[in-house]
Design a protein around this nucleic acid. Structure first.
Lengths: 256, 256
DNA sequence: ATTCTTTTATTTGTCAAACCTTTTTCGTTT
DNA sequence: AAACGAAAAAGGTTTGACAAATAAAAGAAT
């Protein structure tokens, strides 16, 4: 074990311990799947109490850096950094910001257009037959008119996720978690009360067609068109909502 | 306070409490800057001990959802979701993945090219005079031949960050944290031993020139050229490194 | 009356020593 | 040999206390 276990000095003992262990993991002094000393042992080595050690470990566990198991073969182990786990963390941070209204709808749509256009381009170049099959399966689902709005939105998210996957670029896929798990749901929530679903499905189908044909330019321009259309509908919806709010305020005489 | 404080049932008490409080925050039942009951009070209401409550709170604090202060006016408060804090979290998750070699250099460069090209386009359209001044200031720094490699890389990161900021798109800026804080440093670390810095600066200058002229196409194509050039140098460097490794292995007779 | 200092109350931070629960191992019994 | 059960190991939880920070109130000095 490559850890110092120095005596700790001033404030925030649990934080300091968490920082030390985190640093050891990040610098590779603690290897993947290596077992840390038991909590009792750690508290002795760091010279702090077990509850404080546990607070530190909980923080690291919350950051997906370690995991703990009970029992004789149990203990605390260093986690292998995982694309999906990191993606979930990123999605959560993004969702929180989106939920509190940090971003304007318009700039979200712009970000979607530009980033998804990239993914379509790369997908057209790199897609496998499996990717194509997944995309077409979602379109088949979306063509069902009896689908609930929730099911449609879920399929829409899976569709866009499949495009990202088809791009074959893992770093980009990581970045796109923000779009897929936050931006798409929030735009869908606003739009699929007003929007004609059939038009969306038709757009989706044209995107897939272009990806199937390995035509990057057409794929990008189709998704651009799809999302620009969405932007228009969104803005109309927001305008209507705003004027309703104004009307309601005038009627009820309420401000704010 | 809109929390249930139900009796908890089976496993992972601290986790369950953390989940309940997190849900209350995400659903807005706990508002920003609202003060939670004291730890003593929480432990009574949830029917669990204070150390367990504290473990739960530490987890939430690690996710930037709450903060705690001591003293009479102290307590635990709900954090306002913050773009920079979320960005740091995203950067940390990304850096971990990059550090452990999850991604190939080539796909990282591809992701950089495509996403940074977007930012250049938008920057050309939306830049302010301040943005422009920041970009030019970094170029002035980079022209200094006496700069250390570390200082040059730091300026390079600031330069690319300034482009993202100049795009004027906050959602995109959030996503670009992964590129700025992880992908750029790792590529720089590989390249600036081999690479001619003057060529980089010249590329940077041409990008800024295009952004200044509000020429989106040229800005995008300049950054593409810059990064494609980098990809070539990177691949050469990696090839050389690989052949050195092979030679070393043949000489030393060691495998892996 | 105002300002500086001290006290005090409140709340998070830490500690210590237990006990509980889960999980594996190993020995005993059938 | 198989099934069962006891022991041991480790994290999970509890109890009750004390320490440290800090803002506000009370008191003392100017």
């Amino acid at each position: 074990m490559a850890l110092h276990y120095d005596e700790i000095v001033r404030t925030g003992l649990s934080k300091q311990v968490a920082d030390q262990i985190r640093a050891a993991i990040l610098e590779g002094r603690l290897q993947v799947d290596e077992r840390l000393p038991g909590e009792d042992e750690l508290s002795r080595r760091f010279g702090i109490s077990r509850p404080t050690v546990r607070e530190a470990l909980k923080v690291l566990a919350a950051q997906n850096l370690i995991r703990s198991r009970r029992g004789p073969t149990g203990g605390t182990f260093v986690n292998r950094p995982d694309l999906d786990a990191a993606g979930r963390a990123i999605a959560e941070a993004s969702t929180l910001l989106v939920g509190v209204g940090t971003f304007g709808v318009d700039e979200i749509v712009t970000a979607r257009i530009e980033t998804e256009a990239i993914c379509c381009r790369l997908a057209a170049a790199n897609r496998s037959e499996d990717d194509l099959a997944r995309l077409e399966a979602e379109i088949a689902i979306q063509r069902d008119e009896g689908l609930t709005d929730e099911a449609f939105c879920a399929s829409d998210v899976r569709f866009h996720r499949a495009i990202v996957t088809a791009s074959g670029n893992a770093p980009l896929r990581l970045m796109m978690h923000t779009v897929i798990e936050s931006f798409i749901p929030v735009t869908n929530m606003l739009i699929y009360r007003e929007h004609e679903r059939r038009r969306s499905v038709a757009s989706h189908a044209r995107v897939v067609e272009a990806i199937a044909a390995r035509d990057a330019d057409r794929a990008a321009s189709e998704i651009r068109g799809h999302l620009e259309g969405m932007r228009a509908v969104l803005n109309q919806a927001l305008d209507r909502r705003a004027s309703r709010a104004v009307a309601g305020a005038a009627e009820g005489g309420e401000t704010e």
